[in-house]
Design a protein around this nucleic acid. Sequence first.
DNA 1: CTAAAATCCTGGTGGC
DNA 2: TGCCACCAGGATTTTA
Length: 265
Amino acid sequence: MPELPEVETVVRGLRGPLLERTFLEVEVRWARSVVTGADALRRGLPGRRVAAIDRRGKYLVFRFDDPRTLLIHLKMSGNLLVEPDHAPRDPYMHTVFQLDNGHQLRFRDPRKFGRIYLTADPATVLGQLGPEPLHDEFSADDFRALCRRRKGVLKTLLLNQEFLAGLGNIYAGEACFLAGVDPRRQISTLDDAEVERLYHAIRRTLRHGIVHRGSSLDSVYRGGEFQNHFQVYGRENQTCFTCGTNIERVMLGGRSTCFCPRCQR
DNA sequence: CTAAAATCCTGGTGGC
DNA sequence: TGCCACCAGGATTTTA
């Protein structure tokens, strides 16, 4: 589930049930998911009251009245649910955070790729991330400057979180379509007009995703409906909604990438 | 240095 | 129906 719009949707959904709540004990059933140590999490989290929940790239950021910060990355299959203590649990809820109101924050993650950090220095985890594409201060000029000092294949670069934070395979592909740019292009070959189209396409695609509460794909994430608006993702051999040409699929940086060979040049 | 491949995991799907 | 290879929203590490 987790690209920027899905993570943003999760964050917004958690604020109501979690703000002002205090964490009690933590049950860790898959220790490797806690990068900063399961024991340290079990010792350090109880008593922390949630003061703010934010997003940075694809990370959820929980702030307390305390220097320590809880970071969660959902990776491929993670989701966060707030449910009553007695609500049935399935086998994929690998970490359960007890709250002070008879509810639990449950980290459900069938593929076990998700990662949890409790650290007083979140910059060690978040510090390498590129700019937030939706920030007001992130301008077209900033994006052009970013592009001009990089090289490589466009789509691969868009997936690099140190370049720009938050895009994943779906939204990177959709943004290339909206910009009318071939994802296989070397970034150095894009002229200024193309870079500007891409800037607006990225922001529009992400905002569009958020408005629709993200994409529901397999059984992992439910709630959003942006999957009904995909122009190219997962549409190999179907016709382009714009021109009727067959959508093609290629592998770029090991990720499958769909595009319209006529609309994207 | 850079790019590709392997790795971490499990579940679902499509082909035979 | 049953088995198996392959693929999947991510990102880091290893290899070439």
